[in-house]
Simulated scan of single mutants.
Amino acid sequence: MSARTTPMLADRAAVAGRVLLAALGSYTVAALASALLALVLPGPRAEAVSAGTLASFAIMAAAAIWVFAARTLTRAVLFLGLTALLLTGALWLAGAFVPGGAA
């Protein structure tokens, strides 16, 4: 345990960074995963969209928890960034960014 008792500015900034990353990063990953699931799940489109949306709540919660469980903020940023990049690539491969391709 540290000898200091009051949190320093760096500690507060690290917590604020994690809060922002948990809010914005986990939302981004959940939205990308929801869109990908809506495109790739079999069955009627409405059921695929509903299943993707339901799964996004669990994905967002898991990502936010992982941000606070990560050893460093840098590791959390890299993990969520890489996850978002992979999901974006999968969406591109699924034809989500082609006009009329995902319809």
Rank of each mutant, 00 (worst) to 15 (best):
A102T: 05
P42W: 07
A61S: 07
M1S: 13
W66P: 02
L54T: 06
W66L: 07
F68V: 01
R4E: 12
V49E: 14
A23G: 00
L9E: 10
T6M: 09
V40M: 02
T5K: 07
L91E: 10
L54H: 08
T88W: 13
A64E: 08
L41W: 10
Y27S: 14
T53K: 11
L82W: 14
G101Q: 06
F57M: 07
V15A: 08
S56E: 00
Y27D: 14
W66H: 12
A90S: 15
G89V: 03
R12N: 02
I59N: 09
A96V: 05
A61C: 03
L24W: 10
S26F: 03
S2F: 06
M8S: 15
R12A: 01
A33F: 11
G100D: 03
M1P: 12
G81I: 09
A96Q: 14
T6A: 13
G17C: 00
A55Q: 07
L80Q: 15
A51I: 00
M1T: 00
A62I: 00
V19C: 03
L93A: 13
A48P: 02
G81R: 06
W66D: 07
V15Q: 07
G95C: 05
F79V: 15
T83N: 05
A84H: 10
A64S: 13
W92C: 12
L93F: 07
L73V: 08
V19D: 03
R75S: 15
G81A: 15
L36D: 04
A13W: 06
L91A: 08
G100V: 04
